[in-house]
Each structure stands twice: as structure tokens, then as C-alpha cells.
Design a binder for these strands. Structure first.
Lengths: 347, 347
DNA sequence: CTGTTAGCGCATTCAG
DNA sequence: CTGAATGCGCTAACAG
């Protein structure tokens, strides 16, 4: 009776062995059943299925991942959960990953490289099959961490000229440039770019630099404005108020995002200012409210869902290639997606 | 030379043993360092810290969780990622859990009990320390699964009279009732409740039943409307158009959420209808746009952040109690939070 | 305060 | 197609 003293270990939950015993097969066969049903004989499949049903067995992810050294999860770091910007991308990643059995681990960096580093560090402990990062600046430490862990990385919402990882994104500078040209062609000349309150939104900064480049090309003087208000809707109103008054008011505003632009339009409504006649307004994002505003908002629609979908697809392809020891050259590393200027009433 | 054949196992990453070796201590000491720094001598702490720094070691969550049979994660199932309704709650849960080292696993059920069941099943495999569910209906299977796994559950965005689990929420029927009384006191009598397009939003249905009860108490005939349009902003516009025309137009509308109400207000703006004079509009949610609309939206503010914070706190308390083998009676199981009617211009 | 021993539940490996 | 042995990396339990 050496086994009588029950050690206080184990979760007490049903294990693979319990199921195997009940089904009258070995644990290994049940394990195979989970990874590939077809690899076990039909009658065993049925007995195993019955045993699983009866016990309510759920595979312990930890044990499996530990044994195979591959976590069945994908980590994703986005700048901010709230705001509606990344929702569709998250949804797309979830949708695309789910059929392959990967769980999404989500973290938000709050636009901070330190928090991003913390999130990446936390994720690495989960031995994720891959990480999806959004196109922010990265701390050197984060880069080291990533290299050290050897986790495949896909960057999205980014398009760099010398990418370190697979990237899926669109060109923010081009958005800035195209928006500027769009307004120029419609006769606007005193075009001002409105920054978000926070200075560390890299995408916004890139759009601003595209704007500045375009203005120079066109022989115009670029001018930017950064509101004080931190709530985006208020910040947009502040920008509109400030930039349409004074001696040389702007005749067109490029807002770095739709929330800012919406703030401007709603401010105009409240103050009974005829926006379109006073000053053209352009946004970025094409949030769902954009076409409902009065006037409806002319804006740029980034491929939000598509970025998530492609990013997840590349992850799947990459993992499959690694698994099959196939070359990863066939995987498109530079995925440049297109955005679209949506012409409406505000510009 | 029995060890010479390198098995193709292991991740190749730095392990606890590597760190221990480098620091000249045992693996156990390093393990203790992670769970409680103070429990190892100061000089060892420093040597260990140096070794960790040098190797870029990150603890393997799987191995730890497997050994201790406790996953360092908390699963959360919400009805829908997009829409802005649950953002703050998610953020609150993340914020509250982070200091305790728990990772949030997020899944969306898309308002479907089957998808919820799938999510719960997936989560259970992660041996989560706890699950946070939102107050939807649950399939019997899900309930079984939960009972079987023995995972502590906290329900939020719900307040049932006979809760099975710890619950953190507010009373949806009361919201419906109070909104009705609010309008009644202001002289409105032909009050109609506008449902969301989807029939399975339990919270909305509960608010509707509160509305109906209140109308009966007040001796008025309740009337509800469910739009055809699936996009919420459009559905709101449709409801407003339909209900303010005809022989006995409504004089006040209670929308089951702010997105619907916003659709009505934006429709009014576009059609140049003076909303407040035509028909009062009330929403639910107090989304950030509510006070920026014209007219600004009278609505009900649920304790979005607070629900997440309290839910996560209860989880922490519960886990601590379980860990210390303390009684869990001291933990408040029925957390009824308050909402607030926010009076603005639209009603 | 520190080390030793054993095993968490599964998948890999190899042998039938 | 199936089974037995082995160990993934860590921590609980116990002994010093």
C-alpha cells in the first residue's frame, strides 16, 4: 500500500487516461483522435466520442503545449482596446484563427512602448505560435525579446520600407499625401493637418509627414495643429474652433482620425455653422458613424478587417510551413493593402 | 554515450535550470524568486536577477500551470467585441487583473449560446483560474461544462433574482421602468419601446419587460417596435420614421441602446426635423457620442467600468480565499450596482 | 532559507 | 493502425 497517501496535486479533472480507460483504448489513441480523427478506426472513434461526451472531457491545453513545446495560441498587441479602430481587425483575426484551433491572446499597449514590452514578455511565457503586433515603435528590449524567443512575428497596421517581420498594412504617408491632393484638386489651399492629442500615435505621425511632403510638392506651406483636449470629440471641436478663426483661417482640415473629425462636425451642428461652406473636413478611419453625420464625413477607409484576415492567414501559412519543415520563402512577407478615399459631403 | 542522440524535443528556449545554473543556485530557488522575491536571500536575489537579465528568461506559463494545476489566466466571454459597449468593462478587467499577474482570455459569443458554449469549452482547456461571463442565456450544456470543470464563475452585466454564480450587474427591468417613469413625469404618454433588430439581446428584452410593467402600472398601453434594418444606426432611423408618422404618432421613444437612438437623432438632423419638439428620445448606454449629438441624448449610464472592476475584484478575492483555504462566504455574491439617468436635451 | 524528489497531463518517439 | 516508454519545464511536498 505505498500509494495510499494521496498527494495534494492534480486538478481532479477528467484526464485523457480516464477517457481512454472508459473507452477501453490507450491514452495515445485518444490523443490521436483529437489531433486527427481519421487516424483511428471508426469503431474506436465512436467509443472515444461516447467517453468524451459522457465525461465532459476537455483537453488540458497546458499539458499538450508543454509536451509539444508549441502553444496553441496567438498573441496580439494593439495600441488601444477602446475607440473602435481595432475592433474589426481583432474580429478578423479571431474569425480566421478559430477554425485552426488557435486562441487569441489580446493585450493593449496603450500606445506605450513599455507596456508593449510588458505584453510581449507576458506573451512569450505562453509560448505563442506567433505574435501579431501593430505598427508602433518598439523598444530595443522588445526586439531582443522577440529574437530571443524565436517566435514568428507579423506586424500589421504598418508598412515599413525595411520590415523586420512579415508585415500587413497600408502606407500611412500615402494616406496623408492622397488626402492632401484630394483637397488640392477641389480648390482648397490653406489645408491644415490636425494631430491627435497624443504625440505617440505613429500612424498619425506618418500621415502627417505624408501631408507635409505633399504640401511642399504643391508649393504650399504645411501647418499642423495639436489640440490640448484629451477626449477626441472635444479635441476635434477645439481644433475646428481654433483653426477657422483668426486672420488667415484654414479652408480645409485633415483630421488624423474620424473621432476628431466627428467632434468638429458635431461642434458645427451645435453652433449652427455650415461646415462645408466654412471649411472642408476630412477624416481617417471610416468609422460607422462617418456616413451618418451631418454633413456626412469624407474620409479614408483603411482595410481594417482585411488586415486582420491577411495577418492571421500569414500566421497560419507560416506555422504550417514550419510544421512541415517546408521553406517559408513562398509566404508573402510584404503585404501592402489599399485604402480608399470615401467622398462624402464634408469635403 | 547514451545521451548523444539529441531528441527533437523542447523549445530550445532558456529554462529555469539554465538560469539557476548561471546564478549558481537550485532551480527551486529561482522558482521561489518568481513567486515571492522576499523568500530568498538578498544576495541570491541579485544573482538570480542578473542571470534572468542576461538570458532574457521568461517563465514558461504552461509548465507552471501544469505543475500547479492552476492556469494564470481568466477567461471572459462577451456578446460582441465591436460596438463599444463592452470596451470599458474589458479594460477594467484587464486593469484590475494585471497587477495580480493574470492574463485575460477573451472570446465573443456573437450573442449566440452555441458560440458561448464553444468559447467556454475552449477556455476550460486553459484551466482558467476563473471565468467571467456576461448575462446572456446559457445552454444547459454550458452549465454542465462549468459545473464539471469546477471553475469559479462571475457573471456580469446581469442581475438575476436567483443567481447561480457571483453576479455583478444592474437591473435591466428597473432601467426600463425608470426610463418610462422619467418620460411620464415629463408629460409624455404615447411612449414606445424600440427593440434592437436582434431578438436575442437578453438585456434589451429585460428592459422592455420593465417598460411594459411600468406602462401597465401607469394605466397606459405599452407598444414596442422592432426595426428590420440590421445596422443599428439605420435601424434607429427606421424606428423614428415609422413611429412618428401614422395616425397616432408616438410622443416619446425609449431606444434599447444608444446606437439606435443616435441613428434616430442623426436621421432627424439630416431631415431637419426638430426632434425634441416632435418626439422625445431616450437611449441606453451613454456612449461617448451621446452628449455630442444634437440634440444631446438623454440616456441611462450603466456602470460599465465599475462592473468590470468589481467582477475582477471578486475573482481575485475568490481565488485568494480558495488558495488560503479560507471560507468564501465573506465574498459578496450579489453585487447590484446602480445606473444613472443622464438628463440632456432629447427628452 | 534552501535543496531534493516526484509528478502534473499530454505528445513525441519508436516498436509492434 | 495501435501501444509503451519517456520527458516537456516547472512547482508541491517534504527534508534539511
Amino acid at each position: 500500500m505505498t500509494q495510499s497517501a494521496r498527494k495534494r496535486r492534480g486538478s481532479g479533472r477528467t484526464t485523457l487516461h480516464n477517457v481512454a480507460e472508459l473507452a477501453g483504448v490507450s491514452a495515445m489513441t485518444v490523443s490521436r483522435y483529437f489531433s486527427n480523427k481519421e487516424s483511428v478506426r471508426l469503431d474506436m472513434q465512436q467509443r472515444i466520442a461516447a467517453a468524451i461526451e459522457q465525461t465532459g472531457y476537455v483537453r488540458n491545453v497546458f499539458a499538450g503545449s508543454l509536451a509539444s513545446a508549441r502553444g496553441r495560441c496567438v498573441g496580439m498587441v494593439i495600441p488601444h482596446i477602446a475607440g473602435g479602430v481595432y475592433e474589426e481587425t481583432i474580429q478578423a483575426v479571431t474569425d480566421t484563427l478559430r477554425p485552426f484551433g488557435y486562441q487569441l491572446l489580446l493585450a493593449s499597449s496603450n500606445y506605450s512602448t513599455e507596456e508593449e514590452e510588458a505584453a510581449v514578455r507576458a506573451f512569450i511565457g505562453w509560448a505563442p505560435a506567433a505574435l501579431i503586433l501593430t505598427g508602433q515603435k518598439r523598444s530595443r528590449k522588445t526586439t531582443e525579446l522577440l529574437a530571443n524567443a524565436g517566435v514568428p512575428v507579423v506586424e500589421t497596421w504598418a508598412h515599413k520600407t525595411r520590415p523586420q517581420h512579415i508585415q500587413v498594412g497600408f502606407s500611412n504617408p500615402s494616406v496623408g499625401k492622397d488626402s492632401t491632393h484630394y483637397l488640392y484638386e477641389r480648390g482648397y489651399r490653406r489645408i491644415v493637418f490636425v494631430h491627435p492629442p497624443r504625440t505617440d500615435d505613429v500612424g498619425a505621425n506618418d500621415r502627417a509627414s505624408g501631408y507635409e511632403a505633399a504640401m511642399h510638392e504643391l508649393g504650399l506651406a504645411p501647418a499642423t495643429f495639436r489640440p490640448q483636449a484629451t477626449v477626441l470629440l472635444d479635441a476635434g471641436a477645439e481644433a475646428f474652433r481654433t483653426l477657422t478663426s483668426g486672420r488667415t483661417p484654414a479652408d480645409a482640415l485633415i483630421f488624423s482620425n474620424d473621432n476628431l473629425a466627428a467632434g468638429a462636425l458635431l461642434h458645427g451642428l451645435r453652433e449652427r455653422i455650415a461646415i462645408a461652406q466654412t471649411c472642408a473636413v476630412m477624416g481617417f478611419g471610416d468609422l460607422s458613424i462617418a456616413d451618418k453625420l451631418v454633413p456626412s464625413l469624407t474620409t479614408v477607409r483603411p482595410p481594417r478587417y482585411e488586415m486582420g484576415r491577411i495577418a492571421a492567414l500569414r500566421v497560419i501559412e507560416l506555422l504550417r510551413a514550419i510544421e512541415e519543415d517546408a521553406p517559408t520563402d513562398a509566404i508573402e512577407r510584404d503585404n501592402l493593402l489599399t485604402y480608399e478615399i470615401v467622398e462624402r459631403e464634408s469635403a
